[in-house]
Design a protein around this nucleic acid. Structure first.
Lengths: 131, 131
DNA sequence: CTAAATGCAAACTATTTGCAACGAT
DNA sequence: ATCGTTGCAAATAGTTTGCATTTAG
């Protein structure tokens, strides 16, 4: 792992946000003014391939990069905010229902976050806010 | 619903594939030579907003459009192929674990499809083939 | 010394937007 | 006559690529 890769991994692991490449770039830039966005993307892809982070693709919004610690996501149907949550016993239930070997899974549960629940307004199907 | 919207909905409901906008466009074009891709996108977004179809965002590949009939997805970690599957009892289990009202969920289970299992080669984390 | 990583700019892909023309109420 | 839908072209956003240069083992 190169220095940049380590730092980027650090940024992702340290943050509770689900950061976009751009946000990671802006953060890294504070200490490494020379770094460019393409390098951040290269390293993010590298880290994904190595399985050190995971990429979360959301509709109508750039990809997020996330720790690999096992957890699921709550997604607000109005503002698109992502929150970590851990549903238990899911894996066993899945395994019981599929013959093939399960390599992993990705679960997103849609809801209205506390802020949006109060406010009303149009929900957006499919899980994500249209900008 | 306009004619185009109906036809696009028809294409999606009739196909067992999870089609991209481009594929839908190519299909529609056969009977409607004048239609353009932007119109297909407009209608797809419309249909999503109305909840008549759902959009499936995958990494490193264009969005797919899918029927709304309740089902989950198996995703091959090597070739990225999407297959429908229905896991049962999931919703109840989720509801038991969350106080907030659940508006829906999206579950993808990663595995190796029969074709790829035989062939070997590098898997791709995060669920989708890099092109 | 060599191979891999970086900076930079340009390319690319998927998708959206603005606007004028069209079509259906 | 009006308002939403379409075609078209151009714009945009996010991400990737090619290549010359630098860096690290």
């Amino acid at each position: 792992m190169t220095n940049y890769a380590k730092m980027i991994l650090g940024i992702i692991n340290r943050s509770d946000e689900h950061m976009t490449a751009e946000q990671i770039f802006q953060t890294l830039r504070k200490t490494e003014p020379k770094v460019v966005l393409a390098t951040v993307y290269n390293n993010l892809n590298l880290l994904c391939r190595e399985g050190r982070i995971r990429k979360v693709s959301l509709e109508a919004s750039p990809d997020r990069y996330d720790r690999i610690v096992k957890h699921d996501h709550l997604v607000c149907r109005k503002c698109g905010k992502l929150t970590d949550i851990r549903f238990t016993d899911l894996c066993d239930s899945l395994k019981g229902q599929l013959e093939e070997e399960i390599l992993g899974y990705d679960l997103r549960v849609f809801y209205l976050c506390p802020t949006c629940r109060k406010q009303g307004g149009e929900e957006c199907r499919g899980g994500l806010k249209v900008k």
